[in-house]
Amino acid sequence: MMSYDFDWSSIPGALPFLWQGMQVTLQITLMAILVGIVWGTLLAMMRLSKQRWLSWFAAGYINLFRSIPLLLVLLWFFLILPRLLEGVPGITPGTDLRLSSAMVGFALFESAYYAEIIRAGILSIPKGQQAAAFALGMNYRAAMRFVVLPQALRNMLPLLLTQAIILFQDTSLVYVSALADFFGAAYKVGDRDGRLVELLLFAGAVYFILCYSASSLVNYLSKRMKA
């Protein structure tokens, strides 16, 4: 019978490198959440707009990104972004744009998902609220900003956080560009020391602990909000 001898000794020394990887993961996640919510809110409002071409544009954008694998979108941006930025001063063919293109790719992709969550949130607010805001003399912007969106955001907070947790896990897909995010860093260390199994188990445990705690927090929050 074969047995596998686990050897965890390469992990302690690799922690600083793994932490650097985690920072990359967190940077991409936060940037995608931030841009995703802002751009997603705009997309959701465009999609709900009475201006046909705005609503068509938003619907097209959302359907496009939701129908393409994330991996493909990321690859596009890794390949396209350096070309687009070729003429920009300070950027040479050697400049490492992998982090930036990962951020752009994730942000644009996640916006499509956030837009749908936010649109559902906006639609969950009774029409009378908007009518009341209008009746008080507010224009569309003010009614959205002060009356509809704050309530909608509150309703959709659990969904937005859940989407953020999924996003956090999906960032591991940047391995296609050999960018050392947390997963990539763990893979590199494991590959170097011939301890791939241990490192990947360790990485899995870290993802699990972080995501499970975050989703427990979401559950706690949404229960408290209902109370």
Partner: peptide, 13 residues
Amino acid sequence: VGMVFQHFELFPH
């Protein structure tokens, strides 16, 4: 023009 609605429509937040 002030308006009062059947279902009040106060802003709950």
